[in-house]
């Protein structure tokens, strides 16, 4: 019985990944195509997607490969772009205390932006984060990312004008949707407002990718300082609803 429910949880996770896979598909293809353009071989493209599994950092990486920059600097840039994951990792711990050490080790490998956001959404809706569901979601996103980047590397020349399809602005729209999904959380509006302003300022005066970590930090510190917003009746009703099995 337990095994059967784990299996259906896994497939529920895979299904939860479908909108993300659609949103990210063009980026995988684009990454593969650009990587080959910048001198990577198809196996190197596959290696990068299999081991790093972080779209934005991979894009930055291949951009620098094309420019004859010191290897250590490329490694550091990948690290800088991915630094925001520290925040996800810190916030996840509360939800996965019931996981084993190996489950945690595997789970953290798959911790991307959409993975983290969907995991928090699942906690918001069901009150818990199951390992099978999480792996269903994560492995679906992982295999789609690897497959798309390899397809892009092999057939890259076929994508002519990705801008006309809105490819470059699909992710901001998707991320906005996720931000809106958390609007019932305490102090949501001040946190979002401060993070937005701080990230814009950091983008202008410090530069990418640090606007992500700095902007987020501003909102997070604000949340720690502000008194927890008074629990309204709506929240109470929702909490009661959530505690139903």
């Amino acid at each position: 019985m337990a095994e059967q429910s784990a299996r259906s949880d896994f497939w529920r996770g895979v299904r939860a990944g479908m909108p993300v896979i659609v949103a990210v598909l063009p980026f995988g293809l684009l990454f593969g195509a650009l990587a080959v353009d910048n001198g990577l071989s198809v196996p190197q493209v596959a290696l990068m997607s299999l081991t790093i599994f972080g779209g934005a950092s991979q894009m930055v990486g291949i951009e620098l490969f094309g420019q004859k920059i010191a290897p250590a600097l490329i490694v550091f840039s990948i690290f800088a772009v991915n630094f925001r994951h520290v925040l996800y990792s810190a916030a996840m711990g509360r939800h996965i205390q019931h996981w084993s050490l190996w489950q945690k080790a595997a789970g953290f490998f798959l911790l991307t932006d959409p993975q983290y956001a969907e995991a928090e959404r699942a906690v918001e809706q069901t009150g818990r984060l199951g390992f099978a569901w999480y792996m269903g979601l994560g492995l679906a996103l992982y295999s789609a990312w690897v497959a798309n980047s390899v397809i892009g590397a092999v057939f890259g020349r076929l994508i002519h004008n990705p801008e006309a399809l809105g490819v470059d602005f699909l992710l901001p729209i998707y991320f906005l949707g996720l931000v809106m999904g958390f609007r019932k959380r305490p102090n949501w509006l001040p946190v979002v407002a401060v993070s937005a302003v701080a990230s814009v300022l950091a983008y202008r005066f410090v530069g990418s990718p640090w606007h992500v970590s700095l902007g987020a930090l501003a909102g997070i510190i604000l949340a720690a300082i502000l008194p927890p917003s008074a629990i309204t009746e709506g929240d109470l009703a929702e909490t009661a609803e959530r505690s139903e099995p």
């Binding site: 956001a117 991320f175 996720l178 958390f182 701080a198």
Partner: peptide, 24 residues
């Protein structure tokens, strides 16, 4: 509790920074 409040704010805070500069 303050750390808990900070962690609760992580998703909205990080995801906002992935949208705001692009929009502007």
């Amino acid at each position: 509790p303050r750390l808990e409040a900070a962690l609760d704010a992580v998703p909205a805070a990080v995801l906002t920074t992935l949208v705001a500069p692009d929009v502007l």
